[in-house]
């Protein structure tokens, strides 16, 4: 029974990673670049939600508000910072998003009411427990699980069946060819950054009851990288599966392995995966042969 409880809490923790990883995967799938500021976008989203709740908005109204606010920030970010380096190598984008992350973390400490303190976000479902046959799961985890699965399904369908989604994947494979086919690559990039920042905001607000809202909450994004890699970067269901694997391994090693393994289990796992099967579980990578 104890094992099962550990696995359950691992799964719920893992889906948190999956939820953040969704943001990386979205950007990667549509532009084949990686956003190292995803965790910081999530943090900003959580702060937006927090501010909305502090001003008396109900939690469920703060959620779409944070989504919309971050959507705008995502689009602005693409406009100002990423459009000028469109088409540059991945390294450039990595560095620029790292810079954006630094700025975001720094600016938050300067905003009155946000600052460096840890804030609690009151959610209507906080503290409720769901019991089923001796297993206990917090309601806030259930909400995260439901949201993650719903979001990834919706986004999967978006990429699989809508014109825009397919066009985005085309643009990520070959920008020049996409231009030739009449795909407005820049507008699509703008859109995907908006969506991704919005998803980050949802992740931030839903995580807030679990992790609290503070400047460094974005560092959890560093654990979402392994999740995305194990699942196969660029695969939405992969992000969830990768997240769950990492969550379960982490919580199992927290119980059964010596102290310290819990924090690095995710990284050991990702190194093993990269050496054995660099494409991840659902990856579609094929190396170019000459």
């Amino acid at each position: 029974m104890q094992v099962l409880q550990v696995v359950i809490s691992g799964i719920s923790q893992g889906l948190i990673y999956g939820l953040i990883a969704l943001g990386f995967v979205l950007i990667y799938k549509a532009t084949e670049t990686v956003n190292f500021a995803q965790g910081e976008l999530m943090m900003l989203g959580a702060f937006l939600g927090l501010t909305a709740v502090t001003f008396g908005m109900p939690f469920w109204a703060a959620l779409p508000l944070a989504f919309a606010g971050m959507w705008v920030i995502g689009i602005l970010l693409e406009r100002v910072v990423l459009r000028p380096i469109l088409g540059q190598p991945a390294f450039t984008v990595v560095m620029v998003t790292i810079g954006v992350g630094f700025v975001a973390r720094g600016v938050v400490t300067m905003i009155p009411g946000w600052g460096t303190d840890t804030h609690a976000l009151a959610a209507p479902f906080k503290g409720e427990l769901v019991r089923a046959g001796g297993l206990v799961v917090g309601m806030e985890h259930i909400v995260v699980i439901a949201a993650t699965i719903a979001l990834s399904t919706a986004l999967y369908l978006f990429f699989r069946f809508t014109r825009v989604g397919v066009a985005m994947q085309a643009a990520s494979q070959n920008q020049l060819a996409a231009y030739y086919m009449g795909i407005p690559v820049r507008r699509l990039n703008s859109l995907i950054w908006g969506i991704s920042a919005g998803v980050a905001a949802l992740a931030g607000v839903l995580l807030a009851p679990i992790t609290f809202v503070h400047v460094n909450m974005g560092f959890i994004g560093l654990k979402a990288f392994p999740a995305a890699v194990i699942g196969g970067f660029g695969s939405l269901p992969g992000a969830l599966v990768g997240g769950v694997i990492i969550g379960v391994v982490e919580s199992l090693s927290g119980v059964y392995l010596p102290e310290g393994f819990k924090d690095i289990a995710a990284y050991i796992l990702v190194l093993v995966v990269l050496v054995v099967k660099p494409t991840g579980i659902f990856g579609e990578t094929a190396s170019k042969k000459v």
Partner: peptide, 8 residues
Amino acid sequence: AFMKSERL
């Protein structure tokens, strides 16, 4: 520059 996928 135009980016091209390394995936496929």
